[in-house]
Design a protein around this nucleic acid. Structure first.
Length: 573
RNA sequence: CGGGGCGUAGCGCAGGGGUAGCGCGCACGGUUCGGGACCGUGAGGCCGUAAGUUCAAAUCUUAUCGCCCCGACCA
């Protein structure tokens, strides 16, 4: 490709509104152009990267026995009513009508379509297992797109669906997909990524793992044990809580605390540590029931865990409506309506000598004892894991980090086959619902995440396996006939040798060419100029390491091919 | 959906009742040229949109649309 004809421009300034590294560089290097919030055009270089990532995914899915298909983007309401998701999914799914007024949806995921495909087509256990996958544009009306391709409304996604006769077969296959995902992300060029246990969310099912690009700018919080490899999304993470103080409590006593309401204010007023307090956090369910969580003052509520206990989404609440005294709610002598959900977090178990609200305006209780005053209550884990806490598997200290979800895999069970009435005949002649797995990878998100990992202050840095082109051919002094003639010759020779080359055929100053080459991030830059020609050499610079070497023209093509091959092998080994 | 911010030339920004500006980019001519060169000439804007206020609005008011960030949400 000649740069003079490549659609897109490279710009110096940071575009207004872009804050993430990947977003800024993709815009500055002419890889993407925003159309509206969360929707982008992939310009030619980004499309090439996108295709290369897709090809890696295709190879690995095919190696798992996957069969590529293409499901419809626009589907009729009835298909989604079969699974119940026409109503359970809210504004995130785009709904529209066709010309006859028929309700349609844009497919944001394709479990229904996959079951529809297999329904009445796959009839016998003998046809199982199988896996189908597609790579397609998804549209989701995200509440808050952000960070360019990190969280877009429209994005390229690989989604795969497997069908099995037994749960055991699913579990075995699931492990193979899990391993294939590691190969995929490694081949894309990720070094900092990890798999974590995750919540199943609206997909349903029991077991789910997420693949996370580890980065400070990630939206998900991760809990990792560096010692044994335990790794979990914060949403479902568990830990061994800090040891509580077991000092025996004195007589429980009501104390005046006045306007001290927050845990900080109460601690300051009574001169106690937050670890010696039990605070209340309140919500209401969607059907207007009160939810009260008591947990140690230095801890925070894990709302995903709490949602599962309350079996409802959690909404803000004015506790006075339920007869409580905001700022003085305590876990002793609490009076709440009968249908309320009251939860005592595991951090309170065994806690002695602590302060909690007196359920009376302006007063708290001190010298409260869990063993004496919370007799018979059930303690459950609803708090967020903290850095100081220990791994439940091996007891070592946990590490908190952040990640971008670039892939996920679910064991769905029979949620969709059962709701949509898909059955196969088993060896014993009975009809049984197949169990399903589903497996996603965000292509655009992977593209952006690898930038977050690898790009530097000069620009993009592509791994050889997904670089839009392998070589950036950068001739200086194109007004010099020797240079331009040789550049044209090298360009042709590289192309015929199968080297993917971006040729900067413009007659612009050296500074422009060099900075543009660094911004665009191709792995190898081949520079020629009157100086290098005088020595019959090209100057070859590696984008990532900065390593520079001079290669005689006679050896250039074969050396480049070797470097490209070696680099790809190094990444994939 | 809540909170905050921003909409002026392709991009980045200044101007804040009285003739529309700067830098970069773009076009043409010339001189340069291994780290975003220089000189000259030129093209390009209904100041997001709509209603007000005013002799006069990019500027003040209101509404609306768009975009960004934080939160809620997120197969």
């Amino acid at each position: 490709m000649r740069i003079s004809k490549l659609v897109g421009e490279r710009i110096k300034e940071v575009p207004n509104g872009a804050t993430l590294k990947s977003h800024i560089l993709l815009l500055r290097a002419g890889y993407i152009k925003q159309v509206s919030t969360g929707t982008f055009t992939l310009m030619p270089p980004a499309m090439r990267v996108n295709q290369k990532i897709q090809n890696i995914i295709r190879e690995e899915m095919d190696a798992l026995g996957g069969q590529e298909v293409l499901f419809p983007v626009v589907m009729p309401r009835e298909l989604w009513e079969m699974s119940g998701r026409y109503s359970s999914i809210k504004e995130e799914m785009v709904r529209l009508k066709d010309r006859t007024g028929h309700d349609m949806v844009l497919g944001m995921t394709h479990e229904e379509a996959a079951v529809h495909m297999a329904l009445n087509t796959v009839k016998s256990y003998d046809q199982l297992p199988f896996m189908v996958y597609q790579i397609q544009t998804k549209y989701r009306d995200e509440a808050r797109p952000r960070g360019g391709l990190i969280r877009a409304r429209e994005f390229t996604m690989k989604d795969a669906y497997s069908f099995h006769a037994t749960q055991e077969d699913l579990e075995n296959y699931y492990k193979k997909v899990y391993e294939a995902y590691f190969r995929i992300f490694k081949r894309i060029g990720f070094k900092k990524f990890t798999a974590v246990k995750s919540d199943t969310g609206m997909m349903g099912g029991k077991v789910a793992d997420e693949f996370m690009a580890v980065t400070d700018v990630g939206e998900d919080r991760l809990v990792i044990c560096p010692h044994c490899g335990y790794a979990s999304n914060m949403e479902v993470a568990v830990s061994v809580k800090d040891e509580n103080d077991h000092t025996v409590s004195g007589e429980m006593e009501e104390v005046f605390t006045g306007n001290a309401h927050t845990i900080e204010e109460v601690c300051a007023f009574l001169e106690v540590d937050a670890k010696h307090t039990a605070k209340a956090v309140c919500y209401q369910t969607s059907d207007h029931r009160l939810v009260v969580v008591f947990l140690r003052g230095d801890c925070d509520v894990n709302e995903v865990k709490l949602q599962k206990i309350a079996k409802s989404e959690l909404l803000p609440v004015e506790v006075e409506e339920f007869g409580l005294c905001a700022g003085n709610i305590g876990c002793v002598n609490l009076h709440v309506p009968a249908e309320s959900v009251v939860v005592y977090d595991a951090t309170l178990q065994g806690l002695e000598n602590f302060v909690t609200g007196a359920n009376k305006k302006d007063f708290h209780l001190k010298n409260v004892s869990a063993s004496r005053d919370l007799n018979g209550v059930e303690f459950v884990d609803v708090s967020l894991v903290k850095e100081s806490e220990k791994c439940v598997k091996c007891g070592h200290e946990l590490t908190l980090t952040r990640g971008i979800e670039i892939g996920n895999i679910f064991q769905l069970g029979t949620k969709y086959t059962a709701s949509m009435g898909m059955k196969v005949t088993m060896p014993d002649g009975t009809a049984k619902e197949p169990v399903m797995g589903c497996y996603g990878i965000g292509v655009g998100r992977s593209l952006a995440s690898i930038i977050e990992e690898k790009a530097d202050d000069k620009g993009l840095v592509w791994p050889m396996t997904i670089a839009p082109w392998h070589v950036h051919l950068c001739p200086l002094r194109m007004d010099d006939e020797n240079v331009s003639a040789l550049a044209e010759e090298l360009y042709r020779n590289m192309q015929s040798a199968g080297i993917e080359v971006l040729y900067d055929d413009r007659n612009v100053s050296a500074g422009v060419k060099l900075t543009d080459s660094e911004l665009m991030g191709l792995p190898i830059r081949v520079l020629i100029s009157p100086k290098t020609i005088a020595n019959s050499q090209a100057e070859v610079t590696m984008r990532e390491s900065g390593e520079k070497l001079f290669i005689n023209f006679g050896d250039l093509i074969s050396e480049l091919r070797e470097m490209i091959r070696g680099e790809i092998e190094e990444i994939e080994k």
